[in-house]
Amino acid sequence: MKLAYWPGCVSRGFTPELHGSMALVAPKLGLELVELDRASCCGAGVIAEHNQELADTLNARTFALAQGVDGAAGMMNICSTCQGAQSECQERLDADSGYRDHINGTLSDQGLTYEKSGEWWNKNFMWLLVEEIGLDKLAAKVVRPLEGLRIAPFYGCYIVRPTHRLGFEAHPNRHKYLDHLIEILGAESVSYAGSHKCCGFPVITMNRATSLRQAGRHLADAIDAGADCLVTPCPLCHLNLDMQQPDAAKFVERDLDVPVLHLPQMVGLALGLEPKELGMDKHVVKTKDVQVKVAEVAAA
């Protein structure tokens, strides 16, 4: 399957292990990724907060670039925040032809137009795995079932709310996909209070206590529920849950020390890739215990 691919900023900035692991996982799944190297940041909701039309135009440009990729089935992203921010812009662009024409007018001298179409889609890797590839096909590709691993799914906000904007009418189980993926790859999905709550990242520069109390609380809940690690489809969640984890521990006044995987890393492990190639040595919280468990499966 050929895809227009939008990796986002953070996957190429502070979480390069995400971009790298996606590049290795794609061919294993038969995905041909055409990277949109001219596309700009989705705005992460912050540009829209400043000027909605600016965010809508920048994303309309990204969509137009994606629609221009010959033979692509659709567009894929690997960041929940991109998904949420882009879905919000797309909702407005699709809702009103007058508005859409106005935005396309701004893009016209670049030779770009965003075409509204019921066929075209922009899907996060998590949605794509379940809806375009299919759990049964994915299961058939597993060479190293992640048996014995207890993984806590961390969905974050942007990919589960608001449901009316995020296609839940057509796909009512989108809030369960991470659980399904964890289980189809052979691991056990851990249920805990924070799985669909906020990592706190959006206010890390504005209110550090609010931000890190959220991250710390969810990590602690996952640990108490017996998780060996967490997995998330969002690199911004990863920043707060992994990179900031030592500070989050101070805000909730307890030890944390639980590794957090990116979704493509978890998939990659089950497809036989090695932790090192998946960048699992580049986390702030060491992933050694997870690596040991995975190695045990391979040896068994």
Binding site: V10, G13, F14, S40, V46, T205
Partner: peptide, 18 residues
């Protein structure tokens, strides 16, 4: 500051300079 930093950076570089 956060909003301005973000919006200005995308104007300068197109993607976030974290």
């Amino acid at each position: 500051g956060h909003g301005k930093a973000f919006v200005d950076m995308i104007e300068n570089w197109g993607t976030l300079h974290e």
